[in-house]
Structure formats: structure tokens, C-alpha cells
Amino acid sequence: MPDTSSSVLVLPGWQNSDADHWQTRWERRHGYRRVEQDDWQWPRRGDWMARLEEVLLAAPQPCWLVAHSLGCQLVAAWAAHTQQADRVRGALLVGPPDTEREDMPPQLHSWRPVPRRRLPFAATVVISTDDPYCAPQRAGTMAQDWGATLVVAGAVGHLNSESGLGDWDAGHQLLISLRTG
């Protein structure tokens, strides 16, 4: 089965990814497709999981997932409940937030608890040593629980537009490495 760019789905986090975010840049540069959610401001885990399932079932072939922030929690939650895990070949999970933290906004409370089940497909988790939404130790534990390879990108904040990553070629290389196994 061919492995084309159309088989890469982009999963933004809470409030979506803006025009300067590496996910948006990857869509423009590589032809990847964003999974649009009905509500980016008050994300409900069940709604987001249902939307991901719908998109994957409509895809002509198994997909690769590229998630950022809450999108990482979406992948873990979806994988823990779906009967369609074979629709995913692997996932690049960047900057997973710790939704169990006391200081998380009320919009994210439906994302508790953090899913801890091992993912049924290959995954790489990329974290920052100074992510304001998740301590490195917590992110490392999530990666371990999910059975994912952990990559520490250094002190680059939440790995978003404000991190100044631009096209983030190093991150894209991680996706290529994951895809080529």
C-alpha cells in the first residue's frame, strides 16, 4: 500500500494551531490534512475521539498521526477505546500536556485522567525541558506508559509557534524516521 502525504493527519491541540505553527506549515509544505474539530475552545474528549474515528474510517488507507499538545491526549484516549486501531500506522506526539495538573483551565477538565494504556502502534513522543504545560518527568512517564520512544528537544517551551520552530525540519525528520521504521 503506498505511503503518500495524504495519509498523514494533523491533530492540533486546544484552540487549534495558528498560521505560524509548524503543524500548519507542514500542511502547506507536505500536503498533510488537518482533522478539524467542531469546538476548539471547549474541547470534549468524547467529541474529539468520535471525530478522529470518523476521519480514520473515511480514509482510503491507514494513516500516520501528527499530534500536538491536547492532540497527543486525543491519540491516547482514542487508541484506548477504538476497535479501529489498525487504521493508524504510527504517531508523532509533540508536547503532551499534563491535563491532571491543578492549574489546568476548566475547558480541559474532561481530559482527565490522562490515558495510560500502551498504544497499539509505533509512536514517538517529543518533549521540551521547559514546557509550561507539562514537567519533563510527567511527559517521560506518559511516553513510557504509551510504549513510545522519547525524544527530548531541549528548552523550547511548548513546541508551538511561540517556540520559534518555523518549519521545524528536525521534527519532520522524526516523522520520516517513524514512517520508514
Rank of each mutant, 00 (worst) to 15 (best):
E54L: 01
P96W: 05
L11N: 02
W146L: 03
Q84Y: 03
P2R: 13
R45G: 06
S7W: 03
A50C: 05
I176E: 15
H158V: 02
L93F: 06
R25T: 11
G46C: 09
H81Q: 15
E162Q: 11
A139N: 08
L93H: 00
T4K: 09
L56Q: 03
G154E: 06
R45S: 08
I176S: 15
M142Y: 12
Q41P: 00
I127H: 06
V94T: 13
D39H: 09
R45C: 14
T149S: 11
W48L: 10
A79D: 07
Q173P: 05
V75E: 02
G95W: 08
L65W: 03
G181Y: 08
W48Y: 11
T149E: 15
D131F: 03
N16S: 08
V75Q: 07
T4V: 15
E100S: 13
R51P: 01
T99C: 13
L9R: 07
M142I: 14
A80F: 07
S69Y: 03
T180G: 10
A85M: 01
Q84I: 01
L93P: 04
R117E: 15
A122T: 11
H68W: 03
L52W: 01
W26M: 12
S110C: 13
P105Q: 12
A170D: 07
R33K: 08
V10P: 00
V35R: 01
L178P: 00
Q84E: 06
A148W: 09
V151Q: 14
R29L: 14
R45I: 02
E27A: 12
Q37W: 00
Q37K: 06
R116H: 14
G13L: 02
H30G: 03
G95P: 06
P60I: 04
R118G: 02
L175W: 09
E36T: 14
D145W: 14
D86A: 13
W40F: 15
Q137C: 10
W111V: 12
C72P: 06
Q61L: 02
G181H: 14
L165H: 01
V75I: 04
S128M: 05
R44E: 10
P105C: 00
